[in-house]
Nucleic acid binder design. Structure first.
Lengths: 181, 181
DNA sequence: CCTCGACCTGTCCGCGTAGACATGTCAAGA
DNA sequence: TCTTGACATGTCTACGCGGACAGGTCGAGG
């Protein structure tokens, strides 16, 4: 149950409501790491409160309840972060498509890989300015902005996939020339 | 329902039994892309047969049934491969941990990142010889071995994460020196 | 004053999934 | 001949999860 640990990790940054957490999952964490809708988040927060890992910190207008980590919650988060299982849970549609590229006809595969490469380039050009702006504001000694490490991960991820797509195109071309002939 | 498409993709490589497919998921596809146990695979194959995407190709000893793709199955696979949704399903515990590194105390974060870097290095050194052996046997014009693209993906993936971990360590060190002073 | 849109919390249902349970066959080697 | 281990197929149950359903509050602007 990694949703619980995702929530613990997000709450470690400060108290938040179910609504806040739901919006957090709409951002990069939901795009690269783990998805969750509010319909899973509210019940899970309730269970975590029952288990003593979080407490209701304060109640605001519109029935807003912010949750805060307890010591138990902190301990559990740390335990989970430092204890890596042999085989982690992975379920990634994009990677699955990459594994199955070779099931396509060569022309289809080529078109697909070209699409992937172009998409990665576009994402890289979106991401890089944001990261560089972050860095420009950053002075040595400041804490890193939350998400800076994640952003860097995303950037390097796209660069790796881009390189892979180009390499694959080259190999495919070598194995079975089609555009030429 | 990506399990269905994973199965279609694997069957595109040739007929296989539920047992064969289960073992395929124990390999790299289950490690990087999508996991599935036999308890999901057998019912799904039955449903796919009902939907006309696969047929029982031949029956062997011990009740073995090999399934083969139909034209419908091929069409559906191709449709899924070429049609990329805006937001793909992702659920990756490892990436989640990376997103939450900053929730740890600096010393813990540093230890964790060092562990990640070391782990990546080890995997790279496992993978690279296998890929190079593949390449040595490969002559231009031969079809690529199934899994060669996937292996290259894994290799580049580990290299990217390795680079990210080193970069993060450096940034963390700059932001909050601990080993020194 | 009123309306609209963002805020905010929840439940319900059907399907996907993991792990345990159940059953039986065949081949190789002791 | 017997035992062991790989081969092989299935079901069952409890839980995770996404999308729809449901209801209510507050602030800003017309």
């Amino acid at each position: 149950m990694s949703l619980r640990h995702a929530l613990l990790g997000l709450l470690a940054d400060g108290p938040a409501s179910g609504y806040d957490l739901t919006r957090a999952f709409d951002g990069s964490i939901g795009r690269y790491a783990w998805q969750a809708g509010h319909s899973r988040i509210y019940p899970e927060l309730a269970k975590m409160a029952e288990a003593g890992q979080v407490v209701v910190d304060e109640t605001g207008p519109r029935g807003r309840k912010t949750y805060a980590l307890t010591d138990d919650g902190h301990t559990e988060l740390r335990r989970w972060m430092l204890h890596w299982p042999e085989q982690a849970n992975v379920r990634d549609e994009t990677v699955l498509r990459m594994f199955l590229v070779q099931s396509l006809e060569p022309e289809d595969a080529r078109r697909l890989l070209e699409g992937i490469a172009a998409h990665c380039l576009a994402e890289i050009e979106n991401l890089r300015p944001v990261m560089e702006a972050d860095d420009a504001e950053h002075r040595p000694g400041d804490p890193l902005p939350f998400g800076r490490l994640a952003g860097e991960y995303g950037l390097r991820q796209y660069e790796a996939v881009h390189g892979w797509a180009l390499w694959s195109l080259e190999r495919l071309g070598a194995a079975e020339p089609a555009g030429t002939s």
